[in-house]
Amino acid sequence: MRARQPRAGVKGWGGVGAMAALCALAVLFALLLPQVRSAHEGGGADTGGRGGSRGSQAHASVECTEPEKRTLSPSGADGPTIESIRDRPEGERKLIVGVDQNSYRWGYRDPNSGGTADLEGFDIDLVHRIAEDILGDRDAVQFKAIPTDQRISAIEDGRVDMVVRTMTINCERLQDVAFSAPYFRTGQQLLAPKTSSITGYDATLAGKSICTAAGSTAYSTLERDRAAGRLVASADLRTTVPNQLDCLVRLQLGEVDAVVTDGALAASQAAQDPTVQLKGDAFTTEYYGVAMRKDADDLVRRVNRVLVEWRADTEDGWQASYERWLSATLGDDAAKSEPPKPQYLREN
């Protein structure tokens, strides 16, 4: 490595003083260089600084496989997180949950309901079930509409106790939040106008503008696939929006050529707009989970117990919610959307 030559006439240093200082810096750099190299190559000790943190995260990413299994075993025991929810003042004793209010049949307000246009949908059914278990009242919920790109920050900032918002479990998110066991299986899929020449996740995306939600698995998947050559290099990924439904609006306005999102959401959007349709099959397999704070172990375990009971309930459980909300858009066969038998491989 060639050192840059000092500029002549540096003001305020003085000739001899400047050279002495530069020499001292050069010696210091030479002494530190092996340690810097060692840290970048993974051979150095973790000092707890920024570099060490990045190394630990990279190491965790390499080791993380099957993220849907990295959760805690079910339990009905109370703990500090649940107790803090129950200790809220009278009138405020509610479960605070981040949800969507614009995802048709998942979390949305039906203007034709004839009532108060309360939130309803598959995710909302699950929220009510959790609230009933923890607080004894299915309606003891404070819903907070959270944009797609704020789901994790809302949990970390303490604005919500959990997020139930078609949120995919993945390794990157597990560094920031804890997840329940999966409660739904889906995969990334393309949505485009029926008249479009796009046929699926293939070469027909060349030169096409694709919309995704910021902070979504769709965007990270497309970036990764383009870098790996699985997505045509000329696909335009510059259009990102805070909320996934905004992509449908962009598509309707002709500002983008296609939308990539979870197939379960894409099917609901196609049901809202008969001029668009799903193009090709899903090209990933993903699982939705309930997201919570990383240290909320008691809440994670309680939610996992609720999920076990919800799936086993043959009268008003998972299957009933699927038939009520999703069969019209995803079909009568719920088997393809059922999550796998849960495994609880996280120990602490």
Rank of each mutant, 00 (worst) to 15 (best):
R2L: 15
A3H: 13
P6L: 12
V10P: 00
K11M: 03
G17D: 01
G17F: 05
M19D: 11
A20D: 08
A21E: 07
L22P: 02
C23K: 08
L28P: 01
F29P: 03
L32T: 09
L32I: 02
L33S: 07
L33V: 11
L33Y: 06
L33F: 14
Q35N: 06
E41L: 09
G42Y: 04
G42I: 02
G42D: 07
G43F: 09
G43N: 15
G49Y: 05
S56N: 06
Q57F: 03
V62R: 12
V62M: 14
C64E: 07
E68F: 13
R70H: 02
P74A: 05
S84R: 13
D87V: 00
R88D: 01
E90F: 08
E92G: 07
L95D: 07
L95I: 07
V97E: 07
V99T: 05
Y104L: 13
Y104F: 15
W106C: 03
G107N: 04
P111M: 01
G114N: 04
G114T: 09
G114D: 09
L119C: 06
R129T: 14
I130A: 05
A131S: 15
D133S: 14
I134D: 00
L135R: 06
V141G: 10
I146Y: 06
P147D: 12
D149V: 11
S153F: 10
V164E: 02
I169W: 02
E172R: 10
P182I: 04
R185I: 01
A192N: 03
A192Y: 05
S197Q: 14
G200F: 08
D202S: 02
T204N: 09
G207S: 15
S209H: 13
I210D: 00
G215V: 11
Y219C: 01
L222F: 09
L231A: 00
L231G: 11
S234R: 12
R238D: 14
R238W: 06
R238Q: 13
R238I: 00
V241N: 11
N243L: 11
N243K: 07
L245P: 06
C247K: 01
V249F: 03
Q252W: 04
V259Q: 07
V260A: 11
D262K: 10
A267W: 02
A267N: 13
S268A: 14
A271T: 05
Q277W: 02
K279C: 00
G280Q: 12
D281M: 12
A282T: 01
T284C: 11
Y288Q: 12
A291I: 12
A291Y: 05
A291G: 07
K294T: 05
D297N: 08
V300H: 03
V303L: 02
V303N: 04
V306P: 02
W310D: 04
R311P: 01
D313Q: 09
T314P: 02
E315N: 05
G317P: 06
A320Y: 01
A320M: 01
S321K: 07
L326A: 03
T329G: 06
T329F: 04
T329H: 12
G331K: 14
D333K: 05
A334D: 00
S337A: 11
P339D: 10
K341F: 06
K341M: 10
Y344Q: 13
L345K: 04
R346P: 10
N348W: 10
